[in-house]
């Protein structure tokens, strides 16, 4: 999806080039004002001082970033020691997002491969089947997962009834619940790019490998995987990035013990206890991490495009 957008279509067509500036103006205005400008303002806010009732006063300071990394004691005048709390939260988010990505990969790759090797008419149906859940409201999907996994929920009840377990599995409010929630939220994003890559793969190469004495699993490892690597990486990024900044899954499924970046940021803007510059700073740090990842990805795509 991202790849197609990046190319933007054939440049040979210039039918409406006289009108193009007028045509582009609405998107420039709307997006410039309400997406680009806000991000710039957010950058500025991260360097301002917080006000008691939320909001900011216009006094530039590094206090927000400072607060993120350092602990200056209760009154703010002690020697700075490394503040681990927030770093820990970020680290935990990276960890959770990483695990969710791995889980998605383990389930998503075989699924994508299987679908891509179905006959043409059923293939579209499978893709459709996999993508529908994505279009259901994320909140509802997360709530449904919460309902399913509750201590007194249907999953535990049926497992108890069948006799597999004797006590309900306590899944909600654990790390596992959050990972399952993240995996559930973004799984189609792992399946689709891999599916596209396998779809483009030339299976004559698998035949050649088999002809040269490779078992099926050796063929998968040495021939198929390297060939579909761009799709796999795209899928991983498309799951990791949203998982990193996710709010709903950690909040509804993880509870207080599983604070992640999303919850941390949200907290800064709730009511009067919030610290807007700090929230802006945390958002900036998150944004920077995502941008770095995206740049690495784009660079890798360009290199992959050059050698194929």
């Amino acid at each position: 999806m991202a790849g197609g957008a990046a190319s933007g279509g054939s440049v040979a067509s210039d039918t409406y080039k006289n009108a193009r500036h007028w045509l582009l103006m609405p998107s420039w205005l709307v997006l410039g004002f309400f997406v680009f400008a806000p991000v710039c303002v957010m950058v500025i806010y991260s360097f301002l001082t917080k006000e008691f009732r939320g909001g900011v006063t216009w006094e530039p300071t590094l206090a927000a970033y400072d607060q993120f990394f350092f602990d200056r004691g209760l009154f703010g005048d002690a020697d700075p020691t490394l503040q681990w709390t927030y770093i820990e939260i970020f680290w935990r988010s990276i960890w959770q997002a990483g695990l969710a990505t791995i889980l998605s990969l383990l389930i998503g790759f075989p699924t994508a491969y299987y679908i891509a090797t179905r006959p043409a008419n059923t293939r579209a149906l499978w893709v459709f089947l996999i993508t529908i859940p994505y279009w259901v409201n994320l909140l509802i999907r997360t709530v449904s997962m919460k309902f399913l996994l509750r201590d007194e929920g249907p999953m535990n009840n049926s497992l108890l009834n069948i006799g597999i377990i004797s006590e309900p599995l306590q899944i909600i409010n654990t790390n596992l619940a959050v990972q399952v929630g993240l995996f559930y939220s973004y799984l189609p994003f792992m399946v689709l790019p891999i599916y596209a890559a396998v779809d483009r793969y030339n299976f004559t190469m698998s035949e050649a490998a088999s002809d040269l004495y490779a078992t099926k699993w050796a063929t998968l490892r040495r021939i198929v995987l390297p060939a579909v690597k761009p799709g796999v990486i795209a899928g991983c990024i498309l799951v990791f990035v949203p998982s990193l900044g996710a709010f709903l899954a950690p909040d509804l499924l993880g509870g207080a013990k599983n604070f992640m970046i999303g919850s941390l940021i949200e907290e800064q803007f709730k009511g009067n206890a919030g610290n807007w510059p700090f929230g802006a700073a945390a958002s900036m740090i998150l944004l920077s991490m995502v941008l770095v990842l995206l740049m690495v990805f784009a660079h890798q795509q360009r290199r992959a495009g050059a050698t194929t």
Partner: peptide
């Protein structure tokens, strides 16, 4: 195929690009 001691030269060569 991987157990047969015969080898094939394919029409489109099928060389492993990576």
């Amino acid at each position: 195929p991987h157990k047969r001691p015969v080898n094939t030269v394919f029409q489109n060569y099928a060389l492993f690009p990576h």
